[in-house]
């Protein structure tokens, strides 16, 4: 009997521990979210510093934007080529292969351009941003700046954040443009479709704001969110090698998930009739 009572107590305690654990992790997650928001406000305030020191931004535009260019161009080319092939095989059965360009261009501008660019950006530039800021924290460089009366958010974080926000739409535009060229290469040069039909179909079906504009808005939003996640994870990381590794992983995981979820929300808002 006493054994059963003890056993019952153990089970109850284990359950209570589990509930406590759940509460603790929920609170930790919420406080982290709060920190991230306060941090964002600090970063936005820190952006004013760039007016006096535009050089900081230009340097970051190079390392965040220009150095991501190669992967974006290569990926864009192949995505465009694959899209054209797939569209051709699907449409040729209906004799509608002239519409290949419409399918390629619309899917690139509306979806693939912004989304794949953002995913690649999170993996290439986002993780690098987190690692760089996290390492500066681990080697006390950020503390050192604070003690020299220099605000590290203004000097280190804000330029990187803004560079990410500016680079993303530009990279997405380049991705889409190269993708269309890739589609052209496959459809016209390889499969022998008519070049005139390829361009004129695309031109007649693509709307400036509806397609191009909305795609740009998407990539701007993705740029904002991915850069925010990347700089926050770096700044908030536990300053050890393990903590830094975890923070870099979180940037890529959270960044990618945020992109996909936001893409759904934005698409629903933008293209619902």
């Amino acid at each position: 009997m006493i054994y059963l009572l003890d056993r019952g107590k153990d089970v109850l305690n284990a359950q209570l521990d589990r509930i406590q654990g759940l509460g603790r992790s929920t609170l930790a997650a919420l406080s982290r979210l709060g920190r991230a928001n306060v941090f964002l406000i600090d970063v936005l305030v820190g952006l004013t510093g760039m007016l006096i020191r535009p050089g900081l931004l230009i340097k970051q535009l190079f390392s965040v934007g220009v150095q991501t260019l190669v992967i974006i161009v290569v990926a864009g080319l192949f995505v465009g080529m694959v899209m054209a092939l797939q569209a051709y095989y699907a449409l040729v059965d209906f004799g509608a292969e002239d519409s290949v360009s419409v399918m390629v261009v619309l899917s690139l501008l509306r979806e693939l351009g912004p989304v794949i660019t953002a995913l690649l950006f999170a993996g290439r530039a986002g993780s690098a941003l987190t690692a760089e800021i996290g390492l500066m924290k681990a080697t006390e460089q950020l503390s050192g700046m604070e003690m020299m009366a220099v605000n590290p958010i203004e000097r280190v974080v804000a330029p990187r954040f803004l560079a990410g926000v500016i680079s993303m739409p530009l990279l997405a535009a380049i991705f889409s443009a190269v993708g269309v060229l890739g589609g052209y290469l496959v459809a016209v040069e390889l499969l022998g479709l008519d070049a005139g039909a390829f361009w004129s179909q695309a031109q007649s079906k693509v709307e400036l704001f509806e397609d191009l504009g909305n795609g740009m808005i998407k990539s701007l939003v993705f740029g904002f969110v991915v850069s925010w996640i990347a700089v926050f994870e770096g700044y908030d990381c536990i300053p050890t090698s393990e903590g830094l590794g975890q923070a870099t992983t979180r940037t890529v995981v959270y960044g990618s998930l945020a992109i996909l979820v936001l893409d759904f929300v934005l698409t629903a808002l933008m293209f619902s009739k």
């Binding site: 080697t139 503390s143 050192g144």
Partner: peptide
Amino acid sequence: LFQSGALLT
């Protein structure tokens, strides 16, 4: 003066 020096790398 920080233990690691904290120089900007």
